[in-house]
């Protein structure tokens, strides 16, 4: 199958365009997604292509935008709602948790909420304490919700298409620093990835490194360094979706390597890594030769200063250090 090299934002844009062409019930809502073409240009050209009926600029009313998506989904449409950053999604927490996620269950399946809520997050652009966070762990907690967090252009496209076709509400987390990253994307219009399938980015026998979003790339860089500088072969896994989580692939790897490092940009307490570490120790305790290591963002609101911000975000050095912690003393 042929493929084209493109940036993450272009891959997401293609996914939206293709799914809107495929299904008339798919439409977009969000702040500045139409005339302005998106704060991060993910929706570039879509209003010109599909018109104002299907690409809807909204007022700055996050809870109502999401809620209107919930209502439209209940009435049979497939809304894709863009929230400008994950921090702004907090203004819509009521509609996301009390409504989108709860409605199918609390009305006993009489109605579905097939909607996607896209939101970019993550640090690295000096946007300070209200525009730079990582809330995957909070969204991961919500029963009734699916959570995707793609790290490559190909996954971005394949998972977004899958999210739009899924009958469940989906939180779709994008990372601001990955929008410009290029990657090969299959040309197949049915390039739709299953939720709940890890990608094994690199194979290795010595330690398992699990990383999401931008940290999937940092994990790969760390693995190269571990191999070159320490002779340690790391297996690098990108879960791609956190709910459902492909725990089997992660456990299988840990049973092989007997060591695990989990890398995320979010906060440490109750984080993605905390959750995964609990699952690993519950289900693969006998296979562990070292405590599960977590590498997380610093436990502070994201600072503005470039040096402070970068010091608050995990880098390959942190991952290498954690992997060495897990392997030191073991032979």
């Amino acid at each position: 199958m042929s493929a084209t090299t493109m940036r993450m934002r272009e891959a997401l844009n293609e996914a939206l365009r293709e799914e809107m062409e495929r299904d008339e019930s798919v439409f977009l809502m969000g702040e500045d997604i139409g005339v302005f073409e998106g704060a991060f240009k993910v929706t570039q050209g879509l209003m010109k292509r599909f018109g104002e009926r299907r690409v809807r600029d909204t007022p700055i009313s996050e809870n109502t935008i999401v809620g209107a998506g919930v209502g439209a989904a209940m009435a049979g449409l497939r809304p894709v709602v863009e929230l400008m950053t994950v921090n702004f999604s907090l203004l819509a927490f009521d509609q996301i948790i009390n409504h989108a996620a709860a409605i199918p269950y609390m009305f006993n399946g009489q109605v579905r909420v097939p909607m996607v809520i896209r939101m970019p997050g993550g640090g690295g652009h000096q946007l300070g304490p209200t525009h730079s966070h990582s809330f995957e762990a909070m969204y991961l907690q919500i029963p009734g919700m699916l959570v995707a967090c793609p790290s490559t252009a190909a996954d971005g496209k394949g998972l977004l298409k899958a999210a739009i076709r899924d009958d469940n509400p989906v939180i779709f987390v994008e990372h601001e620093t990955l929008y410009g990253m290029r990657g090969e994307v299959p040309d197949d219009p049915d390039h739709v990835l299953d939720f709940g399938r890890c990608a094994v980015r690199r194979e290795g026998d010595d330690v398992t490194i699990v990383g999401i979003l931008k940290m999937a790339h940092e994990a790969e860089r760390a693995a190269e360094a571990l191999a070159e500088e320490h002779g340690i072969e790391a297996e690098v896994i990108d879960p791609r979706t956190l709910r459902p989580l492909d725990l089997d692939t992660i456990l299988e790897s840990v049973r092989k390597t007997n060591r695990a490092v989990i890398v995320e940009e979010g906060w440490p307490h109750g984080g993605v890594g905390a959750n995964l570490a609990a699952l690993i120790q519950e289900q693969a305790f006998d296979h562990l030769d070292a405590p599960v290591q977590r590498v997380t963002g610093a436990d502070v609101p994201m600072p503005y200063s470039k040096r402070l911000e970068q010091s608050a975000i995990p880098h390959p050095e942190h991952v290498v250090s954690a992997a060495l912690n897990a392997t030191v003393g073991a032979s």
Binding site: A68, G71, L77, P79
Partner: peptide, 13 residues
């Protein structure tokens, strides 16, 4: 909580 959802229902119509 039901107000935004009402807007969505009407939008769908």
């Amino acid at each position: 909580g039901n107000l935004p959802i009402a807007a969505g229902l009407a939008l769908a119509s």
